[in-house]
């Protein structure tokens, strides 16, 4: 292209407009991938009545384990629970001085993964009705919050992203108008000599694609740099939560998508910019 500086500028405009929303998308994508790892938290803690002994607890464990809406049950005997509690709190001497173990036998019930909200609530009810069960503790509220937050996040990104992509298209159209204006003489001459609309369009469509593709490449470079820069602290953060890092960078598919989107936007902008000129030439 004849004007490298303005080419670079339009590349940057397209790159920024594509990179920002796709960075958000990548973030949400990664958050969504972390979330299922946290379903451990969705499990139910079922406290049995203190009069129920270990044998009774084992029976309940077997019964509940056979339910279709339950994927896994594990029993934590009250002695084990007391030991763990003592270990974690450092109150072992205090606890040892107690006459009776105040903790009940506890079942950790993990619902089947495809269970929806209503079914999960029904499961809680069903567990609570068992005669041996004292209390069912359910910690699903934060899961629901995370899900809503993710949904809100997606919509937010979609709205911001659409606005930014629209901005990129408008900038591309303006630039294409300038490019076309600079070659107006050529278009007129070619049109008088009988150049078809396709013949006149072709070089400008290539220019549009060149602008868009360059923007797409720069955008994926930006996203890639950003995620590489972010990877180390995020990995460290997740390690603090005892989670293996599922963080995923943009990858080949993401970059290919950005390139394809850039190409499409450039092509579209060139077509829109050309329409006005071709109409005025009656072809």
């Amino acid at each position: 292209m004849a004007r490298p500086f303005s080419t670079l500028l339009i590349w940057l405009v397209v790159a920024i407009s594509l990179a920002l929303p796709s960075t958000f998308l990548l973030t949400l994508d990664n958050l969504g991938r972390v979330a299922p790892d946290l379903t451990r938290g969705a499990q139910l803690s079922v406290m049995l009545r203190s009069k129920a002994d270990l044998a009774a607890a084992r029976l309940v464990e077997q019964r509940v384990g056979a339910w279709p809406e339950v994927s896994q049950v594990s029993l934590i005997p009250r002695e084990q629970a007391l030991m763990e509690f003592a270990e974690q709190t450092g109150l072992s001497s205090v606890l040892m001085s107690l006459e009776n173990n105040p903790l009940p036998h506890t079942l950790l019930v993990e619902p089947a993964p495809d269970l929806n909200k209503t079914a999960a609530t029904a499961l809680v009810g069903r567990l609570a009705q068992l005669s041996e069960v004292e209390r069912v503790i359910q910690d699903t509220r934060w899961m629901a919050r995370l899900q809503e937050a993710l949904l809100a996040g997606w919509r937010w990104v979609t709205a911001i992203g659409s606005a930014m992509v629209l901005g990129a298209v408008l900038a591309l159209i303006t630039t294409m108008h300038l490019v076309i204006d600079a070659r107006r003489e050529e278009i007129e001459v070619v049109s008088v000599m009988g150049g078809s609309a396709a013949f006149i369009r072709r070089p400008f469509l290539y220019t549009g694609v060149y602008f868009g593709a360059g923007g797409g490449v720069l955008a994926s470079l930006c996203v890639w740099l950003f995620s590489a820069w972010l990877a180390q602290p995020v990995d460290a953060l997740l390690a603090l939560y005892d989670m293996a890092s599922p963080l995923r960078g943009p990858g080949a598919f993401y970059s290919a998508c950005l390139l394809a989107i850039g190409v499409c936007l450039g092509w579209l902008a060139a077509l829109i910019a050309l329409r006005r000129y071709l109409r005025s030439l009656e072809i």
Binding site: E185, E186, E188, V189, S191, V192, M193, G194, G195, S196, A197, F199, E282, I283
Partner: peptide
């Protein structure tokens, strides 16, 4: 019609006063 105009124009060779050559 609009679509056939280019083909029609190719039957003519046109010379302009200001030649209208492309300097690029």
């Amino acid at each position: 019609g609009t679509g056939s105009v280019p083909q029609y124009r190719r039957r003519f060779g046109v010379v302009f006063q200001d030649h209208r050559l492309l300097f690029d």
